[in-house]
């Protein structure tokens, strides 16, 4: 398992190599990349801040849950911190599985769950200012 936060560009081939194991017949990857607009407003760059120790612990729990639920032996999850330019990957997931269905489902589960409860925050920089993105729907719950 690879679970990491990194201030360097994500090494996607390394994540894929980690899950490319002989028993696997499918690898599903997901990359979240920096979009050049937020609801039509031009974005010039993004910044990501994390509660690093807790974020890594939560990411590890999500990956372990996925590995158990879909009986996987290899998953890699990496999230960037710091400033990112348009087109850079902010998050990368690689899931290897014997068959494609489990790989797709686990990959979807990991990104969807990460977005609801991993303590990481995105700041959108515009030409004339910046805002933290804080969707109330993503408020993590103690339950």
């Amino acid at each position: 398992m690879i679970v990491e936060l990194t201030s360097d560009p994500i090494d996607v081939p390394r994540l894929i190599a980690h899950v490319n194991q002989p028993s696997n017949g499918g690898i599903c990857t997901f990359l979240g990349v920096v979009r050049d607009n937020a609801e039509g407003r031009p974005v010039v760059k993004l910044g990501y801040e994390a509660y690093e120790s807790m974020a890594v612990a939560q990411m590890r729990t999500i990956v372990e849950d996925a590995m158990q639920r879909w009986n996987l032996d290899a998953v890699a999850l990496s999230h960037r911190t710091g400033e990112l330019q348009i087109g850079e990957a902010s998050v990368a997931i690689a899931v290897g599985a014997p068959h494609r269905a489990e790989a797709f489902e686990a990959c979807r589960y990991i990104i969807d769950t990460l977005k609801t409860r991993v303590p990481i925050w995105k700041k959108e920089f515009f030409r004339d200012g910046a805002v933290w993105v804080e969707p109330v729907s993503s408020q993590p719950s103690a339950q």
Binding site: I111, K115, P140
Partner: peptide
């Protein structure tokens, strides 16, 4: 104690 605003990772 960490005060955690709505998260927006990904």
């Amino acid at each position: 104690l960490a005060l955690i605003p709505p998260v927006s990772g990904g």
